[in-house]
């Protein structure tokens, strides 16, 4: 019995003092941008939930569509009501994995190129994606960044006939999350 207790204590202790395996944030940033002939569209969201497991390379984020902020309030209303239909599909999310985990040393401060593969869900449609990004490792945190393009049609987001050709069919998404170690 004593041995068991010791073992338990040891396991707990190891998990406490070992390097944090998981990094997390609740205020990551995602923005998107497109420049069509009719409308320049730009929106920001500073309430992105994201997490990274540096041992397994798992990386996820989740964002509430309604908390995207637009320059024009009307555009924000149209975005939620007609384009991404936020009442029906409140979140967009990504579940993926770093595929070149061996190239990244999360204990050594530097900037690392990363390849990430996973599934992106927007407007209720899930598509496999493969993107590149960077991880900036500093002593207390890991900052993940990626810029990639998304085709609206891939996610069943339709552009109304009246503005076809005036709004870009592809938008640029920028993900920038500053992850901090999670102490159990």
């Amino acid at each position: 019995m004593k041995k068991l207790l010791m073992l338990l204590t040891l396991t707990l202790a190891l998990s406490q003092f070992g390097q944090a395996q998981r990094y997390i944030t609740k205020n990551g940033h995602i923005s998107f941008y497109s420049d069509g002939p009719l409308e320049k569209i730009e929106a920001h969201n500073n309430q992105v939930n994201s997490a990274l497991d540096i041992k397994s390379g798992d990386f996820v984020f989740k964002v509430l569509m309604k908390s995207f902020s637009f320059e024009k309030a009307l555009m924000q209303e149209h975005f939620n009501e007609n384009y991404v239909e936020s009442d029906q599909f409140p979140n967009a999310s990504f579940v993926g994995k770093i595929t070149n985990l061996n190239d990244i040393n999360f204990t050594k401060p530097a900037t690392y190129e990363a390849m990430i593969e996973g599934k992106l869900t927007i407007h209720g449609v899930t598509k496999p994606v493969m993107e590149t990004g960077t991880f900036v490792v500093t002593s207390g945190a890991v900052e993940g960044k990626s810029v990639f393009m998304v085709k609206l049609a891939d996610y069943n987001i339709s552009i109304p006939g009246a503005v076809t050709g005036k709004i870009a069919e592809e938008i640029q998404i920028t993900v920038d999350v500053n992850l901090e170690p999670l102490n159990n």
Partner: peptide, 25 residues
């Protein structure tokens, strides 16, 4: 624990739902 790491990560970051949701439009 390892097997479902991705799902766990998703659970860990929790719900993004705001405390109060207002009707719009």
């Amino acid at each position: 624990l390892r097997l479902t790491a991705q799902d766990n990560l998703m659970d860990m970051i929790g719900d993004t739902k705001p405390a109060t949701e207002y009707a719009y439009a």
